[in-house]
């Protein structure tokens, strides 16, 4: 099977993951705003470690947001450039789903309520349930004030993760009460989880899209005054 390379630059973390046969090779670093100095070096490092070239890959995956606007665009720009240069299809993956997948991987969660700090008094909010080796969305992703987040239905034991639980701990605790157990208020997306979600989609028959059809997900679209 040809290789799959996943990239995430949508938050203050920068990470890449490469599927090469049975192995998954990863890099992850907290870079702040330093993605432009780090991301391609990480790609080169995992390719070198695996002894692969870009032309050995079969597809790319990337987190397409929501997240920092600039980070989202760097990730998409880099992914599109790589896809155009190596003629590869792309599987875009939600940043929030990637965070949820990470919570499933490390905490064995079955239902994850992700809240990522979106600044300006809001969070990027998304709820996911585990299904098979991946997660499926339960309700729409949104950018909302932490005092108005909504859990989809009852009966799940939700685990809360993402930087929103750090930034708005009290408001979210008050809003969600016992329904959510906060386990990971610092979790950022990791490309290895983006890779896992893309593999689930590939296994289900997805082919990915062309470079020019990869579009950023911002969620926040009110970016001008008036």
């Amino acid at each position: 099977m040809s290789g799959l390379l996943a990239i995430d630059t949508t938050t203050t973390a920068c990470s890449v993951a490469l599927r090469a046969g049975k192995a998954v090779l990863c890099r992850y670093e907290a870079v702040g705003q330093g993605h432009s100095r780090t991301v391609l070096a990480m790609v080169r490092a995992v390719l070198d470690e695996a002894g692969l070239e870009m032309t050995d890959l079969g597809a790319l995956a990337c987190c397409s947001g929501p997240g920092s606007f600039t980070g989202v665009r760097i990730g998409i720009g880099v992914t599109q450039g790589l896809a155009l240069g190596a003629d590869l299809p792309v599987i875009p993956v939600s940043t929030l789903a990637t965070v949820a997948q990470g919570a499933c991987r490390t905490h064995g969660a079955a239902a994850v309520a992700v809240a990522m700090d979106a600044r300006m008094g809001e969070v990027y909010w998304g709820c996911y349930r585990r299904r098979g080796a991946g997660v499926v969305t339960a309700g729409e992703e949104a950018v909302v004030s932490p005092d108005s987040v909504v859990l989809p239905g009852t009966g799940d034991a939700w685990l809360g993760c993402g930087t929103g639980y750090g930034a708005y701990a009290e408001v979210l605790a008050e809003r969600l009460g016992e329904a959510v157990t906060v386990v990971d208020p610092e979790r950022l997306p990791d490309a290895r989880d983006c890779l896992a979600l893309a593999e689930v989609r590939l296994a289900a028959g997805a082919r990915g899209v062309a470079a020019e059809d990869v579009v950023p997900t911002y969620r926040r679209n009110r970016v001008t005054q008036g």
């Binding site: 391609l40 600039t70 665009r73 720009g77 880099v78 992914t79 599109q80 450039g81 240069g85």
Partner: peptide, 19 residues
């Protein structure tokens, strides 16, 4: 800055892939 980054990221990555 934000506009320049889009071009720089895409260009560098495409050149990377084409070596």
């Amino acid at each position: 800055a934000g506009a320049l980054l889009v071009g720089a990221a895409t260009a560098r990555a495409m050149a990377f892939a084409l070596d």
